[in-house]
Simulated assay, not measured.
Amino acid sequence: MTRVAVTGARGFLGWHLRAALQEAGATAEAIALGAAFDATAATAAVDGADRVIHVAGVNRATDEEIADGNVGFAGQLASALRAAGDPPPVVVYANSIQAGNGSVYGEAKARAAEILAGAARDIGAEFVDVHLPNLFGEHGRPFYNAVTATFSHLIANGESPTVENDKELTLLHAQNAADVLLGAVPVPVMEGLQRVETVSGVLARLQGYAELYGRGEIPSVADDFDRDLFNTYRSYTFPTQSPIGLTRHADSRGSFFEIIRSHGGPGQSSFSTTVPGVTRGDHFHRRKIERFTVLQGRARISLRRLYSEEVVSFDVSGDAPGAVDMPTMWAHNITNIGDDVLYTSFWTNDIFDPANPDTIAEAV
């Protein structure tokens, strides 16, 4: 794939989808729907695209807005598909496991699927109807996208959430959902990527992460679900909990400080020297946890959230050591701003795999 047209590109799942597309080397063409819909622009976006992915939807509004919004969005996209001179060969719909369950939302999602399936049939495209469960992931909107976002936000701000309705949730990380929508992961494989957990179980996991991470320690991330849920929690702690202070012990022999305590899972440590004025990095990770620790010298660590102008910078020194953990899907780099050689330690939670590096070029 080289070009993919996406509705809802500015939303929670759309943001995650764009990050996955960037790793795949594909361009995301955003399609505005609703009041901002422009038939000419939408048709141009789908014309010649390798795939169209419909993510946009309405899930929290009045019953009328939910019904009209979901059905209306599908109708607008269907009209653009039918008008395209070179229609896409694949149309993907980010549907919901609630589709057809009798609720206003479920019935609207089901009707939208029918509309898009009809358009795909008319243009000779494959229609992929992906019934997504409860999604969680970095930078979800608290009190809106998911209970994981609400709990993470509250815990990161020192509050103690309570569970009012404990029930089982079927959870899927947004990056896994993005891979399914892109076709990188077959739809039948999605079930194996899901995790069933109670609301109280999710809260207990997040509180456990917070207790350890509050001391600068990394919880066990041997399980992919724990890694993804921890990365979700971390996104709500940044930048207020960075850098992580390290205790430096010094005497006549020199100095000593711990860099990291990891409670489980693989890991890899590396070390670099950097001459004055040179910058390293300028990339991002979708899943990998990475920690920078300056051992000697002076450095500026800068980070920018993908698809935004939000840049956060920290000036760090080996004289007062502090660790900075890179949030997933934030571009980051480190620059030697001192007059001497910079010594830096790097730790990641996985062993580098050249075939799957999870290191995507992106300038801060």
Rank of each mutant, 00 (worst) to 15 (best):
P243Q: 07
I244F: 08
G245V: 11
G245N: 09
G245Y: 06
L246W: 07
H249Y: 15
H249K: 14
H249Q: 15
H249A: 15
A250T: 09
A250K: 08
A250Y: 10
D251N: 15
D251Y: 13
G254Q: 07
F257K: 01
H263T: 14
G265F: 05
P266G: 12
G267H: 14
Q268P: 13
F271P: 06
F271I: 09
S272L: 03
T273L: 10
T273S: 08
P276E: 01
P276R: 01
G281L: 02
G281E: 00
H283D: 04
H283M: 05
F284S: 05
F284I: 04
I289K: 05
I289Q: 09
I289L: 14
E290T: 07
E290K: 05
R291G: 11
F292P: 08
L295N: 11
R298T: 04
S302V: 02
R304T: 05
R304S: 05
L306E: 09
L306A: 10
S308K: 08
S308W: 08
E309M: 13
E309C: 11
S313D: 08
S313G: 10
F314D: 04
V316G: 07
V316N: 04
G318P: 02
D319F: 13
D319Y: 13
A320F: 12
A320C: 12
G322I: 09
V324E: 00
V324S: 01
D325A: 00
D325C: 01
M326C: 10
M329K: 13
W330V: 01
A331K: 01
N333G: 11
I334Q: 04
T335N: 03
I337R: 00
I337Y: 02
G338A: 01
D339G: 02
D339R: 01
D340V: 03
D340M: 04
D340L: 04
L342D: 00
L342I: 03
Y343T: 10
T344A: 05
T344L: 07
S345K: 11
S345N: 12
F346G: 10
N349R: 04
I351G: 12
F352Y: 15
F352E: 15
P354M: 05
A355I: 06
N356Y: 07
P357G: 12
A361R: 10
